[in-house]
Nucleic acid binder design. Sequence first.
DNA 1: TTTTATGTGTAGTATATACTACACAGTACA
DNA 2: TGTACTGTGTAGTATATACTACACATAAAA
Lengths: 117, 117
Amino acid sequence: MNPFGEHIRKKREELKGKDPRFSVRKVAARIGVEPSYLSKVERGEQAPPSEEKIKSLAVELGEDEDILLALAGKVSTDLQEAIRRRPRLFADLIREIKDMPDHAVLRLVREVRDGNW
Amino acid sequence: MNPFGEHIRKKREELKGKDPRFSVRKVAARIGVEPSYLSKVERGEQAPPSEEKIKSLAVELGEDEDILLALAGKVSTDLQEAIRRRPRLFADLIREIKDMPDHAVLRLVREVRDGNW
DNA sequence: TTTTATGTGTAGTATATACTACACAGTACA
DNA sequence: TGTACTGTGTAGTATATACTACACATAAAA
């Protein structure tokens, strides 16, 4: 089990098939790390990188930042900050909906978005 | 600015006024740390302790866990895990409501709680 | 007045996090 | 056939996190 590494390796190799700019070395250079480090991260020999590097990786590979962070066992600092600003409110809300099925949460998100709130 | 330390010192001293079991040494012993460490944390000479210690401190002092964690700049792992399980869903929801006024979020929490969801 | 308890100062330690630097063998390309 | 580029192995480092151990002076209790 190394969801993060496997995921980005798969995606990177896929992109590399069509574009040589997606070699380990080139991607590593673009996100600002050593190639051997990225190689090890992809193979799970090293833990996932920092939030910052994960976010540039998401941009480079055209992946979703929040999903990549989740695969790395992290939560974006902007979300954490929102919770920390109003901990009671957000803790209650999250605990209330954490076991609800996807469709119910999705309905909630949509209702808040285009609604009279 | 050392919101965490100041907060717990104030609360502990308040309790100590009515009950000698709330000295630095006694509380430290109960939450399982060295007294000098707790002293330094309260005075902001040391960063706040781990999530685990903060939670026992909350129990000891009769304070809200989520609020204490927030003052320490942390977010409870159970909330983080809920987000990591369904990152897109939760990230969208949190970003959608993070700038809404308290009363609106509160209404949402209540509506979810005793509602038809 | 001895014992006991108080808060705090000094000086560390263990573990985790987030990487770098460099070398090396194999492959592709000119 | 040399040059360039590939992925990866080895061996580190810097900084942060989360504390411990012990000593010491002052104050309260016996």
